[in-house]
Design a protein around this nucleic acid. Structure first.
Lengths: 344, 344
DNA sequence: TCGATCACCGTAAACGTTTACGGTACTATG
DNA sequence: CATAGTACCGTAAACGTTTACGGTGATCGA
C-alpha cells in the first residue's frame, strides 16, 4: 500500500477525499482537510508526479531554454544565469519546477526543442537567444504550448516577449559620441542572425543620419558575442587604414576582449578610441572604467516569468495586468572609456 | 484512441507487441518490429513519458545541480556551463534527458535538493560545488539515488567523483615561485566551506615547509570566487605593511579582479607582484598575460557523465572500466604574470 | 410530513505505459 | 505420431493520481 492509498487507509477515508483535500477543492470538510494535511506531513507523503502528469496531462515543469557550448559560452557569460535566478523566484511561488534546458552547441536548437516538446516535457517554455527569423516560435505556437521569449523576433506569433532597448542604446550612444565630436563611429553586431543586431545597427544608422552622417558599412563589425569576439573586433578595427575614433559594443562581454586588443597595440581606451559598451559583472573590473549600459538581470527574469504566467490559463488570474511585451531600458553608467573629446 | 493504442490499431496487432517492438525486446518477430518502427515514424508516435514513468518508476531524467544568484554568479562564470556541455553529449547517446537544476542563491541547497528528490524528479544526479561537509551526499546515499559529484568532500558515502588537482596546483605554484626567489607568498581560498580551499591551502603550506618556509596565516585570503573577490584580495593585500611578493589565486575568475586592483594602485602584475592563477575564457584577455592552469572543461564533463553512468545498473555495462574517482590534472600555461625573478 | 437543497464523501473509470503470464502454431526430436 | 520445445503474440493487471458521478444524511421551507 503506497502513496495516496496509504494515506487514505491511515485516515480511514477514501482516496478521493484525500486527493480533494490536498488539492484544495471546496467540497471537503475543513476538519477533514486539516486531518489529511497533518497526516500527509506526518507520513511524509508527496504526490507522485508521474501519476498526476498522466492523469492531468500536465507536468508542472517550466523549461528555460538556453544555449551552451564552446563558441557560445562566452556569450552566455552569466547573463542567462542571472535572469534565470529571477525567473526562479517567481515560479517558486507557484510550486512550479523550473529547469534549465541547455542546448549544446553541438546540436541544432530547433531539433532540440522538437525533442523537448515531443516528449511533453514542460507545460511552458521560455526561449532565449531568439533569432530574427525563428522557426521555434511557429513550432510552439502550432503546438499551442505557452511560451515567452527573451528577445523580439520578426517571427511574430503573438507570444509575449521582453527585450532590451537596443534602439535606445544605439540612439543614446551615437548622440553622445557625435556630441563629443566623433565622426567615424564603428558599431558591432552578433555574428549570427539574432534580431538585436538588426535593431541596433539600423537604429545607429538612423541616428547617424539625423546628424548628417552616414554609416560606413566597413565599420560594422560582426563577431561572436564573447570576449574573443571583442578581441577580434579590435584587431580588425586597428588594421584599417582609416581608423574610426569611437566604437559602440553591443555585447556585454565584448569590451573585455576589445580592451585587450587595444592594450596589445599600445593603445588606451578612452584616449585613443572612445568606447561605449554594456556592463556585466566582469566589466566593472576594466581599467579605465567602462562607459556602458547596465540593467538588473534578476528583475528582468522576474518580469519575464510573469509575462509567461500571465498567458497560462491556470495562472493568468494572478497577473491580471502584466505587460505582455515590454522594452527594458538600461541605465547608462558613465566611465572613462569614452572620456576624450575630439576637436570639432 | 491515442498513443500506443492507436499505433496498435493501425497495425492491427496488440499494444503489448508494439511496446515490445519499440523497446527492443527479443521476443518479437523482426519483421513485425520493422513494421512497428515504420508506423511509429509515420504516425509520429512518441511514447508518453508520464505513462512510462508511472509504470517503471523511472523518469529518464538526469539532473545537474548547480547554484546561481547574485554572489555566486561570478563563480559559475561559465565553468559549469562548459562542463554541462560535456555531460550533455554523453547522456544524449543514451537518450537520457539532462536538465540543469539551478538552485537560486535565495534558497538553501539542501532544501532544494530535498524537494527535487521528494518529487522523484530524476533517476540520477550530478552535484557541483560540494562542500567540505556536505549533507546532500548522505541524503542521496540514504535514498539510494545514483549520483556523482564534481569535487571531493570529507563526507564520503562511496559515490563517484571527479575533482581538479588542487594539491598539484598548489605544489607546482609554490615550487615555481620559490625557485624564482619568492619568500613571502600569499594564497587564496573560497569564502565558503568548499573542500578545495582546504586541499589547496594545506598543500601550499606543506610545499612551503618543504622549502624551509612557513605559511603566514595573514597571507591566506578568503574571498568570493569571482572577479569581485579577486579585487577584494588585491585591496586587502596591498593594504598590508609587509606586502608579499607573489600570490596564487585558486579561482578561475579571481585574476580579473586582482589585475584591476593592482592597476588602480599603479602596480603591474608580473613586475610588482608575481601571480599564478587559473585560466578561464576571460583570462586569456588579461594583459600582461596570465600564468595559470588550464583544462578542458568539456572533457571533464564527459568523464563526469561516464562515472555516473558507470554506477547506474541500467548503463554500467557500457562503461565497464570507467574510473570512478579521478583527479583531473591541469596544464600550466606560462604567461607574463609571474615573469619577474627576485634577487635571491 | 414531505420534497428539495446542500455539504460532504465514496466509487470507479481513466490517463498511457510495461510486463508477467498464458496461449497458439510451428518445428524438432524421438 | 506424440511430445517437447520454441518463437511469437494477446490479455490484463498494475503503476498513482484526478475527477465525474452518484449516494447519504442533514437541514430547511412549506
Amino acid at each position: 500500500m503506497t502513496g495516496i492509498r496509504r494515506l487514505a487507509q491511515h485516515l480511514d477515508i477514501s482516496i478521493g477525499t484525500v486527493s480533494r483535500a490536498l488539492n484544495g477543492r471546496p467540497d471537503v470538510n475543513e476538519e477533514t482537510r486539516k486531518r489529511v494535511l497533518e497526516a500527509a506531513a506526518e507520513l511524509g507523503y508527496v504526490p507522485n508526479q508521474s501519476g498526476r502528469s498522466l492523469r492531468q496531462g500536465t507536468t508542472n515543469i517550466i523549461g528555460f531554454m538556453m544555449q551552451t557550448g564552446a563558441e557560445i559560452t562566452g556569450q552566455g557569460d552569466t547573463f542567462f544565469m542571472s535572469v534565470f535566478d529571477g525567473v526562479q523566484t517567481v515560479f517558486a511561488r507557484h510550486h512550479l519546477d523550473l529547469v534549465a534546458l541547455l542546448c549544446s552547441s553541438q546540436e541544432d536548437p530547433d531539433d532540440y526543442l522538437r525533442r523537448v516538446v515531443a516528449r511533453g516535457f514542460a507545460d511552458g517554455l521560455i526561449l532565449s537567444a531568439t533569432q530574427r527569423h525563428d522557426p521555434r516560435l511557429e513550432f510552439l505556437a502550432k503546438r499551442k504550448i505557452p511560451f515567452a521569449t527573451l528577445g523580439r523576433s520578426l517571427t511574430d506569433v503573438g507570444q509575449p516577449w521582453l527585450d532590451l532597448d537596443f534602439e535606445g542604446m544605439a540612439q543614446t550612444s551615437i548622440d553622445r559620441l557625435v556630441a563629443k565630436g566623433h565622426r567615424r563611429i564603428a558599431v558591432t553586431r552578433p555574428h549570427d542572425d539574432t534580431n538585436l543586431g538588426y535593431l541596433f545597427v539600423d537604429q545607429a544608422a538612423g541616428a547617424l543620419a539625423a546628424h548628417g552622417l552616414s554609416m560606413d558599412p566597413d565599420l560594422v563589425f560582426r563577431s561572436t558575442p564573447n570576449e574573443a569576439g571583442g578581441y577580434q573586433i579590435a584587431r580588425d578595427l586597428l588594421s584599417k587604414q582609416d581608423r574610426p575614433t569611437a566604437i559602440v559594443l553591443v555585447n556585454e562581454t565584448n569590451a573585455i576582449g576589445f580592451y585587450r586588443g587595444m592594450n596589445e597595440a599600445g593603445l588606451q581606451p578612452g584616449r585613443d578610441i572612445a568606447i561605449i559598451g554594456r556592463h556585466s559583472p566582469q566589466s566593472h573590473f576594466l581599467s579605465p572604467s567602462l562607459t556602458g549600459f547596465s540593467l538588473s538581470r534578476r528583475d528582468l527574469g522576474i518580469a519575464l516569468a510573469e509575462t509567461l504566467l500571465a498567458t497560462m490559463p491556470a495562472f493568468s488570474h494572478f497577473y491580471p495586468n502584466a505587460e505582455l511585451r515590454k522594452i527594458w531600458r538600461e541605465e547608462l553608467i558613465e566611465g572613462e572609456s569614452d572620456a576624450f573629446t575630439l576637436p570639432v
